[in-house]
């Protein structure tokens, strides 16, 4: 599959892929809406969600020297499209999304490198950033585990990664995945900050160092 990374998402031709690739078993979308936190409604209400795909690990039985790029180029763009499309739909549109993150869980017959291959290359990351109209590096988590493992997925602001109010996480879990020969790939996003974000920002921080603490000036 050839993928042109320059044009807008609408012109990305992924139609050559079969509608249901045989390596794609399950897609789960999980969304949370916080109405009350510590008995008070958030000043800025937000939705956050994960979209997770369970796929067959295409590298089972291959040696640690194997070039992973052919499968990355075939699979990762499809995952980026399917997962971000579901995030956009469940969170109320691309413009509503303010923070993002990504993750992968590789089953026990795979290498952690297999998980990384599907989320850490431009064939996933650039496309996810483009589809969600962000500019930041996308923060991530990965692990190797049996089916049903939970993974806490970090998120930060899609345009200004250092925006402290948007540092947040969401927990992903697939009940029956990944099997030993599968990989779970997760895209996560949020429409706003933490429910009661109030720990300042770089602009408001005092100067803090070991010496200011020792002097008791902060």
């Amino acid at each position: 599959m050839s993928v042109d990374l320059e044009p807008s998402p609408g012109s990305l031709d992924l139609e050559a892929a079969p509608r249901t690739p045989d390596w794609l078993r399950r897609i789960a979308v999980y969304r949370e809406e916080v109405l009350l936190e510590n008995a008070a409604a958030p000043a800025v209400p937000a939705l956050k969600a994960t979209a997770a795909a369970v796929i067959r690990n295409p590298w089972i039985g291959t040696p640690s020297s194997r070039d992973l790029s052919p499968e990355v180029e075939a699979i990762a763009p499809v995952l980026a499209r399917e997962l971000t499309g579901r995030l956009i739909a469940t969170l109320g549109g691309t413009a509503a999304i303010e923070a993002f993150g990504k993750a992968a869980i590789v089953g026990t017959r795979g290498e952690l490198e297999h998980a990384g291959a599907l989320i850490h290359t431009p064939f996933f990351g650039n496309l996810m950033r483009e589809f969600l109209e962000g500019e930041s590096i996308i923060c991530f988590a990965d692990t190797r585990a049996d089916a049903g493992e939970t993974l806490v997925v970090p998120m930060w602001h899609k345009n200004h990664a250092a925006t402290r109010s948007h540092y947040q996480t969401i927990t992903a879990r697939i009940s029956d995945g990944p099997r030993a020969d599968e990989i779970v790939v997760v895209a996560a996003a949020s429409t706003g900050p933490r429910p009661h974000a109030r720990i300042g920002d770089r602009r408001t921080d005092p100067t803090v160092s070991a010496s200011t603490i020792a002097k008791g000036t902060k």
């Binding site: 249901t20 045989d22 794609l24 078993r25 399950r26 897609i27 789960a28 979308v29 999980y30 969304r31 949370e32 809406e33 916080v34 109405l35 009350l36 936190e37 008995a39 579901r86 469940t90």
Partner: peptide, 25 residues
């Protein structure tokens, strides 16, 4: 009624037993 959180889950099974499920369950 005090509702703290609403969770929504949508799950699609696209293949099962190694065969496609069409339309997805």
């Amino acid at each position: 009624m005090n509702v703290r959180k609403i969770v929504t889950i949508v799950d699609e099974t696209l293949t099962e037993g190694g065969r496609p499920v069409e339309p997805a369950a």
